[in-house]
Amino acid sequence: MITVENLTKSFQGVSALNGVTLDVEAGTVLGVVGPSGAGKSTLARCVALLERPDSGAIRVDGTDITSLDGSALRAARRQIGVVPQGDSLLRQRTAAGNIALPLESAGIPGPQRRTRVGELLDLVGLTDKAASYPDQLSGGQRQRIAVARALAANPSVLLADEPTSALDPETTGSVLTVLDRARAELGVTVLVVTHDMGVVRKICDDVAVLEQGRVVEHGKVLDLVNDVASRTSSALLPAVDLNPINESSYDRVADVVLVGFAAVGALLPEAAHRFGVELNIVGGGLTRLGETPVARFRLGLNGERSDSALEWIGEAGGSVQRSLKGPQGVAA
């Protein structure tokens, strides 16, 4: 579990972090997103103990790690696995040798080291590449070895700064799968910095949006998508207004967000049936957040009980975000 409290950091008077507070629950994945220069890497580097914050606290499993020195600092670093931004493998060591580095730092003897390296190669699916040198691996394979190295000493948290930034979509998938396995199989708490909302969509439970050194949005992805005003929802949900519609042909037009199999599959037909209204999907679409199907639709309704139908959808777990036509806020 990671807790960041009121973190500030400036470089030569230029503020990079301006009172950042956030937390990552044990065993979950937090995505830190935001525009270039927002302070994402600075935040990650502070948590990775590569940069000392000016003020504030960073707790990993309850212990403040910001003011450690010497061997306590090195011990804390072993608790925090880091996948740095960019190429970070030793080019003169094999894949297995790279994964072994944290184990050597921890003073783990040779035979145990080899066993552990074998487990990690298996976890990242690169057992057959144990003896390959980084230059003989693809970018995605190198990145998976970097993840394996970060996990070698059994850290309780894993940090990754833009782990997929230089990769094509398919390779990105393989790296994300590995991060997801780390969380699922090892129970590691993950903080991943990314500019790619696809990463958030695929593996993040929570998201924090950073802008100019401040957290401007922080919460569960599935909660934030229900909030029409949130940056997360506009970035992750399908656009609704691609096709201009003829509003006059409907009594009511409203946007609705549906989360989960049940809601996406059954809610709208049920509403139409119950209230005897005509209910058309006139915009939007379906996507997937992790394993959860999520839809944002623009609905066009005709019928006397259209308002009641919208209200019922809201009560039944859908989120009616705005009524574009008809009494404002009727069911929201």
Partner: peptide, 15 residues
């Protein structure tokens, strides 16, 4: 030697 490589080693807790 690239700074990312050195920093990666630092984060492993190496002396």
């Amino acid at each position: 030697v690239h700074v990312t490589v050195v920093e990666a080693a630092i984060t492993t807790g190496a002396s």
